[in-house]
Computed example of a mutant assay.
Amino acid sequence: MVPYNDRVPPANEQRRAQLADAGIELLVESGVHGVTHRAVDRRAGLPAGTASNYFRSREALLVATARRVVERHQADMAEAARTAPAPVGGDGVRRTIDLIAGSLMLAAGPHRARYLAIFELRLESLRRPALAAAIDELMAEMAAFTGGHHAELGLGIPPAAIPPMLVMYGGALFALVTGPAEAVTSQAVQPLAVAIVQGGLAAARFTPA
Rank of each mutant, 00 (worst) to 15 (best):
L131Q: 10
V35W: 10
E59V: 09
P3H: 15
L166A: 01
P191C: 03
E120F: 07
H37C: 04
V8M: 15
G89V: 00
I135L: 08
E59K: 15
R94F: 03
L104N: 00
T36R: 13
P85C: 00
R42A: 00
L123H: 08
V167T: 05
A22D: 05
G34W: 07
E79P: 02
L26G: 04
L104D: 00
L131A: 01
P85E: 13
D91E: 07
P159T: 06
E29F: 03
F206W: 14
R16H: 05
F55Y: 15
R16G: 02
A209P: 10
R112E: 01
F55A: 06
P47I: 04
G90K: 07
R7S: 14
D98P: 05
Q190A: 09
A209S: 12
P208Y: 14
G34F: 05
E59N: 15
D21E: 10
A202W: 04
P85T: 00
S186W: 14
D21I: 02
R112H: 06
V184T: 14
S103R: 06
S103C: 11
R43L: 06
V184Y: 11
E79V: 04
V189S: 00
P129E: 13
E25L: 06
A20W: 02
G45N: 12
Q74T: 07
R82V: 03
G45H: 09
A195G: 12
L61E: 10
L19A: 07
T50A: 12
V194T: 10
V69S: 08
D76E: 04
A175E: 05
V2G: 12
P47D: 07
M105G: 08
L99I: 14
F55V: 01
V197S: 03
E141Q: 15
R58C: 05
H73F: 07
A117P: 03
S30Q: 12
R68Y: 06
I100S: 11
E29S: 05
R95C: 02
S30V: 03
A188S: 15
R112W: 08
L26E: 08
M139V: 11
L106S: 10
Y115F: 15
G171H: 10
A84M: 14
